[in-house]
Design a protein around this nucleic acid. Structure first.
Length: 812
RNA sequence: GCCCGGGUGGUGGAAUGGUAUACACGAAGGACUUAAAAUCCUUUGACCGUAAGGUCUUGCGAGUUCGAGUCUCGCCCCGGGCACCA
């Protein structure tokens, strides 16, 4: 028997699928639209990572099930090609990012095509395409006009590696998410998106309490997803977002200040911020952040020299570090505790965070570890004053309840080259003006010197042709903003971008691009799959923008992804894959040697999709064997002979498998779905004479989402000559991937006999086969007649526990 | 420190409170072959036993239950996230 030629078959079907557009939904006429989205990759020049393939395959299998279940599935693909990551690589290999993008794009699409996924290639997009970033810029302007985008001088995160500022979300453990350099704080004026204005909404959408989905359901044209309790997301990711937004209810309490040089006592005050107003009687000092102290200096405080020095030392660039040794200095000022009129010292200390609460805390060493540590270091008293209730603490101190969020506004500007230019113009007379929408896109010029400057200026600041423009308002000379926007802005709306691409980018600026029928029909996204590492980056930004779009009347939905599932991480031989370890798996090699189908199946068989798995070369063998056995069985001549001998047992296993595979794919439990297919194949092989074409057809359909090429090859071979198909007879060709997904017959699944477990004192002593539905008496009799059981039942039976069709337990 | 996941054979991993170790890899033995690869068959948690059968076993220790990998409590270890957020 001839072996399956995966190279030939994969190439052939990929071409035919594309020619026949079998994965292109009819956007306008589709009756059951299903938007199956996978996080698009940034095209690293090293090529597609096996981790990408793992994620894409998982998403594709789900999409293929839905397609066969009769949905009009839209599974788009694109490249998140703008941004620091791609640019850093271009810098490293001394190539212009725009040139490198072309190379990466070609390579990536080639690799993606080789996977055999059901991508809608016509709608593919790249974020660096001017047609795309025209709308990225348009979105920026809409936020600006709505007052959700502003410029502010602030202590921001500066990456000395990437030579640009970063958003809080992009600083991981004090290091740059991209290059790993230690991030420092720098005082700079930057563009921000006011994501904090949506903090409450972002939080509420996660929770079952106030379901924003109810609203979606009312307004959405297509069938609402089955979720009724907030968004249906992996709990892990919801928790991460909840923590990142970090809502807490606190109190702010006013302490009047005394001993301020040259000022009357109690003329000034400080607001301290606390979650523990119940501990206020134990306050023995007040601590303020250096930043707040600096503000006091600015408004006229005559501080002692050492205090000034301390404050200024803490304004400089400094690395973000976790829990270091606390430092501080006594300010000379004292504060009065409003509950007992005690005079306590005010310290300036770097353990107080400027950006959270009021930038001042009351030190209660008896009830707070950090306060205690500080008090011990500086020999401050520790009071044993008793606790009161929270309410009493607030009431007696005259404090007020406040709500705090940990979430900060989204820093959107970058001092880099490879991004969408921020569409703003600064005029000395008129101030900041958005670029008129008709002038979009502001094209990124192809400049020679694209290297980051290391200053607070982007490389574009050296291109006069770019920045020297007329003010849109007064027409006098003005300066264009030369920073570009964060890559995460590109990816925060791409799911809508695919739908604009369907219209060939033809929408005119001035009309709302997102409120058309197509968006109404296809959004929100039905199933979103991606990495959990984006829990507080991408996934938060997308939700934020979706809410803004809704409020601007651009779209009809608030949550872009009612259903999201995070996939796990792939490791190699027990260790994380990394370039430095040299253990990164390149899918090309495996696709070439084993075939895309085999690699797909192996990746999915390796472990639970949401938990990831350990890639071992030895594991490829199992699925390769399996597929070859499927091929051999399917191409055996007698099966095509319509010979059918009724075999009840085989039917039962077949229908059980339909049920299991269907449910497992729905739950993304691909590993167990595959094992069910293996069990069925084993069964087929032991009963080769009982299989007719009907059984084989069902099996091949169940296999189709996992091994799309081989399934198609078998399907078409059974139905006639493949030679004809190669020439494509469009009238006759019907892909297996558009066939109906098999349904199981509940009657056929029912067992007529059952393995009855017989226990004596909860220890299993026998398994006896009995017809289903027997009562306790019959089972007891059958059990007693078993020799091994009988020998334990010589003494009297005290009690019998009986569960129908399952087990019987004799207590002796 | 806090919040999530995990811990099951030699390995990856299965198990609605009811036969623990499905499926696969690996290994051992056999068939085919001049030989090897490939393929096929058998065995494969540990221990005792010729066998029938028995005992033990899901990180550790308790508990609930007729019955616990699964539920509860207390630990230990691994992975991930947050972290001077008052």
């Amino acid at each position: 028997m001839k072996k399956f030629d995966h190279k030939k078959a994969e190439k052939k079907w990929q071409e035919i699928w594309q020619k026949e557009s079998i994965y292109e939904p009819d956007f306008k006429k589709a009756k059951n639209p299903f938007y199956n989205l996978m996080m698009f990759p940034y095209p690293s020049a090293e090529g597609l990572h096996v981790g990408n393939m793992y994620a894409f395959t998982g998403s594709d299998i789900y999409g293929r099930l839905k397609r066969m279940q009769g949905y009009d599935v839209f599974e788009p693909i694109g490249l998140d090609g703008f941004g620091i990551h791609s640019e850093n690589y271009a810098l490293k290999i001394r190539k212009h990012p725009a040139d490198q993008a072309k190379v990466s794009e070609k390579n990536f699409y080639r690799q993606l095509a080789a996977l055999g996924n059901g991508f809608a290639w016509n709608e593919r997009l790249e974020t660096y395409d001017p047609e795309y970033y025209k709308w990225t810029q348009w979105i920026f302007i809409q936020l600006y006009k709505k007052g959700l985008c502003y410029r502010k001088k602030a202590a921001v995160n500066w990456c000395p590696g990437c030579l640009t500022v970063l958003a809080d979300e992009q600083v991981v453990g004090g290091e740059c998410e991209r290059c790993g350099a230690k991030v420092v704080k720098k005082e700079l004026e930057q563009w921000f998106f006011k994501i904090t204005a949506y903090a409450d909404k972002l939080l509420d959408g996660l929770d079952p309490v106030r379901s924003s989905l109810a609203e979606v359901r009312r307004t959405r044209d297509k069938v609402a997803s089955e979720t009724s309790n907030g968004i249906d997301w992996s709990e892990k990711v919801k928790i991460a977002q909840r923590n990142w937004i970090g809502k807490s209810e606190d109190a702010s309490i006013r302490f009047s200040l005394v001993d301020v040089p040259g000022q009357a006592d109690k003329k000034h005050y400080v607001e301290v911020f606390t979650t523990r107003p119940d501990t206020i009687f134990g306050a023995t000092f007040v601590a303020v952040s250096p930043e707040l102290a600096k503000f006091w200096l600015d408004i006229g405080w005559q501080a002692p020299a050492d205090v000034k020095k301390y404050i200024f030392n803490h304004q400089a660039e400094k690395p973000i570090e976790a829990a270091k040794e606390k430092t501080g200095v006594f300010s000379g000022i004292s504060a009065v505790n409003p509950v007992n009129n005690q005079k306590i010292p005010v310290w300036v200390s770097d353990y107080v965070l400027a950006g959270y609460g009021t930038g001042a805390v009351m030190g209660v060493p008896a009830h707070d570890e950090r306060d205690l540590e500080f008090a011990q270091k500086f020999k401050l008293p520790v009071s044993d004053a008793p606790l009161v209730s929270v309410e009493e603490g607030i009431k007696k101190s005259g404090g007020k309840k406040t709500v705090q969020f940990r979430l900060r506004d989204w820093l959107i500007s970058r001092q880099r080259y490879w991004g969408a230019p921020i569409p703003m113009i600064h005029c000395t007379d008129c101030g900041w003006q958005p670029v008129p929408e008709k002038d979009l896109p502001v094209k990124l010029p192809h400049i020679k010197n694209f290297r980051p400057t290391g200053t607070d200026q982007s490389p574009l600041a050296s291109d006069e042709k770019f920045y020297k423009v007329k003010c849109p308002k007064c027409k006098s000379w003005a300066r264009r903003e030369t920073d570009v926007s964060d890559t995460f802005l590109d990816s925060a709306w791409y799911y809508l971008g695919y739908l604009l691409k369907f219209e060939n980018w033809k929408l005119k600026i001035g009309n709302s691009p997102f409120s058309n029928d197509i968006v109404r029909k296809w959004c929100p996204v039905d199933m979103y799959i991606g990495g959990a590492e984006h829990s507080v980056l991408h996934l938060l930004y997308v939700r934020f923008l979706a809410m803004v779009f809704k409020d601007l009347g651009l779209t009809h939905f608030e949550e872009p992804f009612p259903k999201f599932r995070a996939h796990g991480l792939l490791i190699k031989d027990g260790a994380k894959m990394s370039k430095s370890k040299g253990n990164v798996v390149n899918p090309d090699e495996y696709v070439k040697n084993y075939g895309a189908d085999a690699l797909r199946m192996y990746l999915m068989f390796i472990g639970p999709f949401d938990q990831g798995g350990d890639f071992r070369d030895s594991g490829m063998k199992g699925v390769t064997r399996f597929l070859e056995r499927v091929w051999q069985l399917s191409t055996k001549s007698q099966i095509t002979n319509h010979k059918q001998i009724p075999n009840y047992n085989l039917q039962r296993i077949l229908h059980k498998t339909i049920k299991k595979v269907t449910e497992d794919i729905e739950n993304l439990s691909y590993n167990t779905a595959i094992s069910a297919l293996m069990i069925l194949l084993n069964e087929f092989e032991t009963n080769p004479n009982f299989i007719s074409r009907k059984e084989l057809d069902i099996f091949i359909k169940l296999l189709a989402p996992f091994a799309p090429h081989m399934a198609e090859e078998i399907w078409q071979q059974i139905r006639g000559s493949t030679r004809k198909i190669t020439r494509i007879n469009a009238d006759k060709f019907k892909s297996i991937h558009l066939e109906k997904w098999p349904k199981f017959d509940p009657e056929l699944i029912k067992e007529d006999k059952v393995d009855f477990i017989v226990q004596i004192n909860a220890k299993m002593r026998a398994v006896i086969k009995l017809p289903v539905g027997l009562g306790q008496k019959e089972v007891e009799a059958a059990a007693r007649s078993d020799n091994n059981v009988a020998k334990y039942l010589t003494a009297g039976v005290k009690r019998i526990i009986f569960v129908k069709d399952k087990f019987i337990n004799f207590m002796v």
